[in-house]
């Protein structure tokens, strides 16, 4: 599913070159539920951005479903994100001018799926996260947990091969976070979608099939290798 080889990411801060990721070699198979753990600034969000094709690596190779990603054009990467990836963000990142239905429907519109099919899949995804009675609500009218459920529905609606969740419970209280984690786990069980989550929350780590620990841009521990 995912194969990285010597993945490096550096940033330029003025004259200083900061290396965020140092030669990451990682392999994730289809259907895995992987937690990428590490303290703040360890490089886990950068790794997720690279795996999600939102940032290009400085060096190294990244393959998704045996396709080399680093050589793809901007449009091809956009299409790949729309068709094969789903994102769940720490800050939910819903479009404030759209209601729940429209936010969830958006990825399907990008893929130019027919209206009837879009509606069916959107309603199903919203039902999966338990928000059917909120479809006309705007994000500002929802709680944090509800917003994250909408974001999860939006990530799942296109039946992606891979869902990338960047600290999905970091902005939620304990009870809500637990609800979101259970939802993610249930959906993973139901759909068998590959899930990669960044976290420093021990609860998420416990739920994951595999924990990849990162420190200073390097993988220091991978439970799959133990």
């Amino acid at each position: 599913m995912i194969l990285t080889n010597g993945l490096i990411k550096t940033y330029h801060l003025g004259d200083t070159v900061v290396t965020a990721l140092k030669r990451i070699d990682l392999s994730v198979t289809r259907g895995e539920f992987v937690a990428i753990a590490g303290p703040s600034g360890s490089g886990k969000s950068t790794l997720l951005n690279l795996l999600g094709c939102v940032e290009p690596p400085t060096a190294g190779s990244l393959q998704i479903d045996n396709q080399e990603i680093t050589s793809l054009s901007s449009n091809a990467l956009a299409d790949l994100r729309a068709e094969r990836l789903g994102f769940v963000f720490q800050t939910f990142n819903l479009l404030s001018v759209m209601n729940v239905f429209e936010n969830v429907e958006y990825p399907l519109q990008l893929r130019k799926i027919a209206k009837a099919e879009r509606t069916r899949r959107t309603l199903a995804a919203i039902a999966d996260v338990g928000l059917t009675s909120f479809i006309h609500h705007r994000p500002a009218q929802l709680s944090g947990g509800q917003r994250q459920r909408v974001a999860i529905a939006r990530a799942l609606v296109g039946s992606p091969a891979l869902i990338l969740a960047d600290e999905p419970t970091a902005n939620l209280d304990h009870a809500t976070a637990l609800g979101i984690l259970n939802l993610l786990k249930d959906l993973h069980r139901k759909t068998q979608v590959t899930m990669l989550l960044t976290t420093h929350d021990p609860k998420i780590m416990q739920m994951a099939d595999r924990i990849v620990e990162i420190m200073d841009g390097e993988i220091i521990k991978d439970s799959a290798c133990m």
């Binding site: 999600g52 939102v54 901007s74 449009n75 956009a78 299409d79 790949l80 994100r81 729309a82 068709e83 990836l85 994102f87 963000f89 800050t91 990142n93 479009l95 404030s96 958006y106 990825p107 990008l110 893929r111 939006r154």
Partner: peptide, 16 residues
Amino acid sequence: IGEIGTLMALGTRRRG
């Protein structure tokens, strides 16, 4: 800017 990032992460092309 954040919203633009979200739209592009979801698969919106730069031309979009």
